[in-house]
Amino acid sequence: MYELFKNLGDWLVSGEQWTGPDGIGHRLAEHLQYSLLATLVAAAIALPLGLLIGHTGRGAFLAINLASFGRALPTVGLVVLVFLASGLSMWPVYVALVALAVPAIVTNTYAGMNAVDPDVKDAARGQGMRWHQVLFQVELPLALPLIMTGLRLALIQVVATATIAAYVSFGGLGRYVFDGLAQRDLVQVLGGAVLVAVVAVVLDLALSGLQRVLFRHRPA
């Protein structure tokens, strides 16, 4: 056990491990690229949807069931399915990651919009605000903390799951996990897993820090 952790430490800090196309630096950049792009695409789909459902109050049933369906959908199965349908391309990775992130963002956005005090919306309308003014100047700012929570949750899950890109022969930190599993090299597997966990935790902390700085004028 001790030996293993010592080797793991050596693996993580050795210079040659960090450079080159197989190096941690490059794999980390790939991993971040998959994760951030997928989360952005998911946000572009899910935010308008969540805002619309929250603003109109219609389709709440859809939002709740979408979340439940999203939780039940096995990501590995989805990746393989899209891979078999599309061949060697980035599609399986992005489809699976976006499908994972959309429900978390939609439901939290909806929950945030739904929690806005109806009296506040009434007052805004009573002052003669148009629907888009109510939406963007009243509801959206009030719902923002919960929306951010949804985005954070989605990003963590996507970072954790982007490991799967390596399963369909792409890069990212999952490369170490799958190559290590194939080569029975436990140190490499653990190294990859630790790096993914660290990236997820660091990104989450960074986002929650950003959230605190952006909304410090407001009670939590």
Partner: peptide
């Protein structure tokens, strides 16, 4: 919860 599931299994 922030630790990826595949990483948990592997760890």
């Amino acid at each position: 919860f922030t630790i990826p599931s595949i990483a948990v299994f592997v760890l």
